[in-house]
Design a protein around this nucleic acid. Structure first.
Lengths: 109, 109
DNA sequence: CAATTGGTTAACGTTACTGTTAATCTTTGA
DNA sequence: TCAAAGATTAACAGTAACGTTAACCAATTG
């Protein structure tokens, strides 16, 4: 959970995740897509790997390539936590709190 | 989205969110709960406010108190993004990819 | 075998974040 | 009015994160 959100906190890493939604891609192609040096992106990929958000497999035809792809587990875990938070508004009492919140004026910043 | 995940990246701030699931609390009480100086937590609360995750209202009886409570909007937005990512595994093709991922051995790192 | 390519790690400077104490402001209460 | 309480901002030191260039390793290709 901690490593997951730490990984997602960076815009570049979220961009990578969005790119991988179209399928696995080699590291170099990702670096080019996000307009960043290969070493810089390599470290981002390391963070994503540490959080379990992506995995790397060897490119079958060319063993130099590292094909990155998405992993489902952390996303599911994060959704579960968000569902718990959302439970705050789910019940009658929560809905009332929400009503108070969204109707009240004079919010100080 | 960026401010939301930046706010959630810190464990202390997530702890605050979990505390607020039980209802609004004044800043001081939160600082005491997370075992941290009031100024330190005040800055965390500022980050949470900037991300729209919490709001502060004046304590009705004692105007010195700042009652913090959860806001739903950013959590819903984050869930929507996660749903998009999860769509990667939703369809038949996605399920197949997942199968490959979870069954394949020899994961490097 | 030598040169190139894809990728990662090392070293470096810069910037941003975190927590503490001190100072500031507003509100409450003696 | 004057002191104390709740909370935030200011100033400061320590640490971690980010991106770049340089060095390095493995695999491919001539």
């Amino acid at each position: 959970m901690d490593a997951t959100l730490a990984a997602l906190a960076d815009p570049t890493r979220r961009r990578v995740i969005d790119l991988l939604r179209d399928g696995p891609r080699p590291a170099g192609e990702l670096a080019q897509a996000v307009q960043m040096s290969a070493p810089a992106l390599s470290r981002h990929l390391r963070v994503l790997r540490a959080g379990g958000l992506v995995r790397a497999e060897a490119g079958g035809d060319d063993a130099r390539l590292r094909l990155y792809s998405l992993r489902q587990e952390p996303f599911t875990a994060l959704q579960a936590w968000l569902d718990q938070v959302q439970a705050f508004w789910a019940e009658r009492l929560g809905s009332f709190k929400d009503h108070l919140e969204t109707t009240q004026e004079g919010d100080r910043q």
